[in-house]
């Protein structure tokens, strides 16, 4: 009887058949380095996936930080749409892909099957969030949103999204950079995003808004348009001034000063926001409800 621990020379024996096949097909064990490097490569993919996810998360963290979450109503948005605008879809898809890469790589490492999917997801998300917060704190989120983000299809950098939300004359909202303030004469000058200058009257502004004018460079203004009864020219009357939120303000092309009361963005105001005063202005009423001292 053949010992189970010795080679049986019988040609019908399975061991002999397998060894013959190994001999005929010249099969050799794959070198150990192939398995080692495959495993290492998978971990590299995993680390790369976490780094990619963290970079994308930094853009999301930056985007969230840049928004005034309590003021979405003033911008005429709903909470859901405001969230959609703040969270760029293309980055959200990117973070899902990074998560998939991490899961796929870990599952295929030598012992990756031992980790439950929930643990992999939790680890990946923690890595994204911690890494993303650190990168965002070091301005990487903003840089990515501005540079790489500008190259991506279906993506608008957050500063331009904010500009489209707040530079909305039809709703009584304009943004600009304060270039001069003379509170004794109740006048201040604003550089609009297109580079034009506009002089505005601060008579109706609250002390809080006047303080904002004195200290902030970029501001958001809620107001209304009215037409001068004698000259017929349009004027923009500011009701409240809010500082521009976040680090980024849309670049302004400096232009020459425009005379007061000339048609500018004011001419874009529809009748709907033309009012006899701030009280009837919807965005202002909302602001009064949210931040009464304005």
């Amino acid at each position: 009887m053949t010992s189970p621990f010795s080679l049986d020379p019988s040609p019908n024996d399975l061991a002999s058949k397998v060894l013959d096949q190994i001999e005929e097909t010249r099969v050799t064990p794959r070198p150990a380095w192939q398995f080692t490097w495959k495993n290492r490569l998978l971990w590299v993919v995993c680390v790369f996936g976490v780094a990619l996810g963290a970079a994308i998360a930094s853009v999301l963290v930056f985007s969230v930080q840049e928004m005034d979450w309590d003021l979405y109503e003033i911008a005429g948005s709903s909470r859901m749409f405001f969230f959609r605008d703040a969270i760029p879809a293309v980055w959200a898809v990117g973070i899902l892909l990074a998560g998939f890469a991490v899961w796929y790589a870990i599952r295929r490492t030598r012992a990756g099957y031992r980790y439950p999917v929930s643990a992999i997801i939790a680890i990946a998300l923690s890595g994204f969030l911690i890494g993303g917060s650190l990168l965002a704190a070091n301005d990487v989120g903003r840089a990515l949103d501005e540079t790489l983000g500008a190259q991506l299809p279906l993506h608008t950098p957050i500063r331009l999204k904010k500009l489209s939300l707040w530079m909305n004359p039809a709703r009584g909202l304009i943004v600009g950079e304060v270039s001069a303030v003379d509170l004794e004469k109740n006048a201040f000058t604003l550089v609009l995003p297109d580079g034009n200058l506009i002089e505005l009257n601060s008579t109706l502004l609250s002390p809080q808004s006047k303080a904002t004018l004195a200290h902030a460079s970029a501001v958001r203004i809620i107001g209304y348009a009215e037409r001068d009864a004698t000259t017929g020219t349009a004027r923009f009357i500011p009701c409240a001034v809010l500082p521009w939120k976040g680090k980024e303000y849309p670049p302004i092309k400096k232009g020459k000063a425009l005379p007061v009361d000339t048609p500018g963005p004011v001419s874009q105001f529809p009748d709907a926001v033309r009012s006899t005063g701030c009280k009837d202005l919807q965005p202002y009423a909302i602001l009064q409800r949210i931040r009464p001292n304005h």
């Binding site: 189970p4 061991a15 060894l19």
Partner: peptide, 17 residues
């Protein structure tokens, strides 16, 4: 042993066949 000499693999086959 099988990595050193393929004939040793027969013992593993026997053990698990």
């Amino acid at each position: 042993a099988s990595l050193a000499q393929k004939e040793a693999f027969a013992a593993l086959i026997r053990r698990y066949q």
